[in-house]
Design a protein around this nucleic acid. Structure first.
Lengths: 133, 133
DNA sequence: TACATTTGAGCATTTAATTACCAGAATTAC
DNA sequence: GTAATTCTGGTAATTAAATGCTCAAATGTA
C-alpha cells in the first residue's frame, strides 16, 4: 500500500503540536506534546525549536516551562506552519525532478499542479483557531 | 521548495520507459532508456526487470536485444504501472501514519482522500497508447 | 546558593532510495 | 564454436532525509 500524499512526521508534529498548545491556557511542554501525538520527545523538541525560531511560539525554560503561542490562533494558517517545516510548496507541473523532460507532451499535464494547488488552498484556509473548539 | 506530490525515480522510469519502448518498432535496451530518461542504467535495469516479471514487457538478451511490450499499449494504464512499482494506492483520510489520531476532528478531513482519488482516477484514465502519437 | 526542570544545539544513528558492481545466462553474428 | 552483446539477479556502496541522543544553558523554587 502506497500513499500519494504523505506528511512527514515533522509536519504532523508541527500542526498537531501547535493546536495542542493553543488549547492550553498554561504552556505545554515537550513531554506532554510527545505523549499526546505518540511521537518521540526528541523529535517534538526539534520541531518546536523551529516554530520558536520562525516566530510562532515562545518558549519558557525551567520548571513549569514549555511552549505557548506567540501569534493569535486565528492568524496562524496551516500553510505557514507546513512551509516552515517542509519549505515553500512548489506548484510544478511535473512531479519528477529532472531538469529537462524528454517528452514533448508531459505525462502529467496539469494534474499535479491542479491538485497541489487544491491542497495548498486547503492549508491556507485552515487556521489554528478552527481547531481549538 | 517542497513538493506535495512526488514520484519516485523508479516510478518515473517505469512510465517513461514503457512509453519509449512502445514508440519503437524494434526493442529498446537499457542503455538507450537510461540515456533518454537521464537516469542510471542500473536503476533502469532494475525497474525494467520488475515490469518484465509483472507481465508488461518481454525481454530479449543478446546483441540487438532489449525490451518490448507484452500487452497492447491501449491495455496498459499508468495506474497499473505505478502500482507495480509503488504498491497499491491507499485512499486514506489521514496522511499521517499513526494508528490512532489523538484528535476528535481530523485536521485533514477528507481533503487527502479526495485528492488521492482524483490522482488515482487520472492514472487510471491514461494508457500508454495515448503517448505514442 | 543548590537543585530540579526544561529548552537549545550539535552530533550520531537509522532508514529508505538510489546507484554501482559483478558474475552468470541467453542470444546473435561471424 | 567463439566472441560480443544484453538481460538477470544478488549484493554492496552511497546518499539524503528523518529520527534519536547527549550534554550544555537557562529558569524557577526553596
Amino acid at each position: 500500500m502506497s500513499k500519494v500524499f504523505s506528511l512527514s512526521e515533522a509536519a504532523s508534529i508541527a500542526l498537531h503540536g501547535i493546536i495542542l498548545i493553543a488549547r492550553e491556557k498554561e504552556g505545554l511542554n515537550v513531554i506532554k506534546i510527545a505523549e499526546r501525538t505518540s511521537t518521540s520527545k526528541h523529535h517534538v523538541a526539534k520541531v518546536m525549536q523551529r516554530l520558536v525560531k520562525a516566530g510562532y511560539l515562545t518558549s519558557q525554560r525551567g520548571p513549569s516551562g514549555g511552549f505557548s503561542l506567540k501569534k493569535k490562533a486565528e492568524d496562524i494558517s496551516f500553510l505557514e506552519l507546513y512551509e516552515v517545516i517542509e519549505g515553500v510548496i512548489e506548484i510544478s507541473t511535473c512531479p519528477m525532478d529532472k531538469p529537462i523532460c524528454p517528452f514533448d507532451k508531459c505525462i502529467f499535464k496539469n494534474v499535479t499542479s491542479k491538485l497541489t494547488l487544491e491542497f495548498k488552498n486547503y492549508l491556507q484556509e485552515q487556521t489554528v483557531d478552527q481547531y481549538i473548539q
